[in-house]
Amino acid sequence: MAMPVRRTLLALHRATCSRLKNAEASLDVWHPVPLFLPVRTKKRYFIPPAVGVKGKRDVNMESKAKAAGIVFRQEYFERPINIACTAGIFDPYVPPEGDARLSTLSKEGLKQRTEQLRQSAASQLAIRKIKEYDSQFVTKEFAEKAQEIFIEAHNYLTQFNREKLHSLVTERCYPEMTRGNRYKTISWRFIESLEPPKVVHARCPDMVSKGNLYGQVTVRMHSKQTLAVFDRFGRLMLGSEEQPKDVLEYLVIERHLVNPYGRWRLHGKIVPSWAPAKDPIIKTVMIPGPKLEPGQEFEALNYSVPRPKPVQWNK
């Protein structure tokens, strides 16, 4: 009985195989032979991190690369150099003591006059070099132009216009003018010029490389101005809006001479050692008080300001 069953199964198997071969031949099915055989490559010890795992864990990639035999390129943290302006004032002008107070007819005034004539020799050489790069440079006209730059820069400072202020002030002078003015209101006004501005000093230094010239011109300006600084609560901290003051200033205007698109900008001020001390700033703070009802005044209340309790930090 087992033999007839086995024969029938073999016959069925052969019939199905023949049918499959005939179907593949009719459909023109072709099984390509694989061209590449899988071969085991060199084992990698350094595996790059997966996407999205970069900020999840702190892995020392340099040590992993060294273990894998990969040499990392050394990184140099260099400080950027700004070549649009210099970092300071070269050979600053020394204002004579008692300027705008002593007359040239007095004994001390004549001494100061002779010292200015001695210092003017180096300034004349610098002015000649500046005229080689700036053909329109004239000392008399430049003094008036420097005064206009000074007035425009301070007007934009009161308006907090950063774009316009950057075009009139160098990168060295900008942080000095804007430092500490975030929560303050500045009211500045130029009234009149007591004496015509004049060029008193000029230097033409080079920086980084020979031939990279910068022009620095010191302008003496004696004018009448008003200045008032208010804090964030609207209280007066310095100066007055109504009372003008006579101000004697020595402005340093700078330009990158090699750059054909360079402009004359305010670079700084020279404060003489004999200048009087500035007025102290009145700092105000907000003291917490009681909540007032409508129609109630604070003066009517007998309110005492709470003082903090003394605390002993260390014995």
Rank of each mutant, 00 (worst) to 15 (best):
G211S: 07
V229N: 00
P92V: 02
A202S: 14
P306L: 11
Q312E: 10
C204E: 08
H166Q: 15
Q296M: 08
L125K: 12
E24S: 13
E293T: 11
A23L: 15
D246N: 12
V5W: 04
K291W: 04
Q136V: 09
G295H: 01
A143E: 02
L213P: 03
P32S: 14
I282M: 04
P197S: 15
I253S: 00
K278N: 04
V208N: 10
D58Y: 06
S26R: 14
G262F: 09
K245P: 00
L168Y: 01
I282K: 07
E195N: 14
L102G: 00
I151H: 09
I127Q: 09
C204H: 11
E241N: 08
P95Y: 04
R118N: 14
R235D: 13
V200Q: 00
P260K: 07
Q159G: 04
L12H: 06
R14W: 06
A153P: 01
I89S: 04
F36T: 12
G239L: 03
L251C: 03
P4G: 08
S26H: 11
T218P: 02
V229R: 00
P34H: 06
N181E: 06
K21L: 15
E78W: 02
V5M: 10
V219L: 00
Q136R: 09
E163V: 09
P280I: 03
R44S: 12
L266W: 06
Y174H: 05
R203M: 07
P290H: 05
K198E: 11
R79F: 08
E241R: 10
L110I: 14
